[in-house]
Design a protein around this nucleic acid. Structure first.
Lengths: 301, 301
DNA sequence: TCGCAAATCGGCCAAATCGTTCATTCTGGA
DNA sequence: TCCAGAATGAACGATTTGGCCGATTTGCGA
């Protein structure tokens, strides 16, 4: 997360929230607002603490300006439906120009206005990378801009990943990645983020991992779920054969989720898999379902 | 080895703690922060003293970057680093097994015991990745372990990068990356980290970037320094020709630093470049030198 | 080694914040 | 409708904080 963490005094919060200073102090003392103290005993509230408070109480800053914060309600998802495009294009442009701080800010604003980390990341990043890819094939962008954009996006995803609450060690394990010949890191990183957010102990093996190595990893980690993110296929025939062998060995008990833009209508029918996901949203729903099913199975056994 | 502990001034602590310099001075005088004095009476706080203060008051650095410390609580400081070798092998093993938290802890202990972020990262990570590479070619490790290790290491480097103080917008610009056919992201990320730490506005273009795209980037960004990190070469003849053409176009005013394990004695003599760096340490020294030279040039012009 | 710019010193003061108390307003039930 | 309990907002002296100042020290380059 951002290295600089601003802090606010009760008076500032009071003005931003349009309540009295006394109330803010009481809320701090009651524990509703996470508060730290200076050595002399003055209350200080970090930005994280403020966000936590706002989220838990469903409150909004009626006057964010005094804290130097952007007006979140204007970005609210339901309030400005038509602004999606403008936000997306702003993000895409910033990513192409290597303006990492701007990208991070847009993503953060998206999240503070009610999107989940996964939703915001998927929408903004996949859209932007598609757009950059298109522009690149049209010679409007240079290769280095595409590469740099990938690096920045990966950093953002990793930051979101780090900001998630710690994983429950008892949670079911999921592993996955991108197969050999697939150089894309972002999709599998997004899948990992999504699964972690819905409570899986998800671990991405990375990109360009041969399916034999998936098999070894499955043996080592004993997962309850395996995903395969496929953005690029070098040899379709070999790919289909290897995936099917892998699926065969996985057996019935471990579901195999596949997805990715390389799995088009010519490839997909030839593959053995448990489910195909068109989007991360789809994946999340499936994963949540499987998690609760696992829980039931354990409870009944 | 870093023998003497780093020391911080009240002003630095103030920024890291998000309080005023006056308050830090008062806290020092009150005895809350263990303080030593220079002969002339200036206050200095050692890293140990800082730890003691943070632990006793249950406090965290809200802005650790300005002290060159990683962005994590210093409370969990178990000071049992052991010998260099044992630390290295522990890190290597944790990386191979995907134990990200352990890796992060070892790296941070290294930094809080006086190493700079760059030094610690280079020593631990390059050593570990070499070791993992060796074990992999010997069939002791699986491919997925190597890929996962790279991903984790890259995350760690990016976390250190994020914990650095914000870049001075007036600082000289440096760009660089790994050329086409080179799939390694870590080396160029480490170089970027190192340059940022010594005050450059460094931006990595990523891996697998064609030299033509380097040229475009040079045109777009107008850097004062360009680096080329080469860990793998597909076609040596083409590579040499392209690097030399690139160096030619760069001209005299923009130094080209090259490095990486692929530049062996058969390749290097054929290349045009300003300097070759055997290690990141070497690179840091050179970059610091060039930065001060730039400063002088600007001052005299 | 010397000189100079930047950092730090100690002290001072206005403004902010502390904890507390009390009057007022809001809320839900008899 | 009335009342008791809870939350809010305002006011108080005591304490802390943050910025300012001229004098001194430090660190770096010539």
């Amino acid at each position: 997360m951002a290295s600089s963490q601003p802090q606010y005094s009760p008076k500032q919060l009071a003005e931003a929230l349009c309540v009295s200073e006394s109330s803010v102090k009481r809320w701090c003392d009651r524990g509703a607002v996470p508060t730290i103290r200076t050595l002399g005993g003055h209350r200080r509230v970090t930005l994280d603490g403020l966000h936590q408070f706002l989220k838990q109480t469903g409150r909004e800053l009626s006057n964010p300006g005094v804290l130097g914060l952007p007006n979140l309600s204007l970005l609210s998802r339901r309030h400005v439906p038509g602004s999606d495009d403008s936000v997306h294009s702003a993000f895409r442009e910033a990513l192409a120009l290597g303006m990492e701080a701007t990208c991070r800010r847009i993503l953060q604003e998206r999240i503070t206005s009610g999107w989940s980390a996964t939703e915001a990341a998927e929408k903004l990043i996949t859209d932007a990378m598609c757009g950059i890819g298109d522009a690149w094939t049209c010679d409007q962008l240079d290769i280095y801009q595409e590469r740099r954009g990938c690096d920045i996006a990966l950093r953002l995803v990793n930051e979101l990943r780090a900001s998630l609450p710690p994983i429950d060690p008892g949670a079911p394990v999921a592993i996955g990645g991108a197969p050999a010949g697939d150089p894309y890191q972002l999709p599998t990183a997004l899948v990992e983020l999504a699964l972690r957010q819905v409570g899986w102990q998800a671990m991405s093996l990375g990109n360009n991992v041969p399916l034999e190595s998936f098999q070894q990893a499955t043996h080592d980690c004993d997962p309850q779920l395996v995903w395969l993110s496929v953005s690029s296929i070098s040899d379709p025939i070999v790919f289909v054969a290897q995936v099917n062998e892998f699926a065969e060995r996985l057996g019935e008990n471990v579901p195999l989720l596949v997805g990715g833009r390389a799995l088009d209508d010519t490839i997909r029918p030839q593959l053995r898999y448990t489910a195909h996901c068109d989007s991360v949203k789809h994946l999340i729903d499936l994963a949540a379902l499987m998690k609760s099913k696992l829980k039931r199975d354990i409870a009944t056994s």
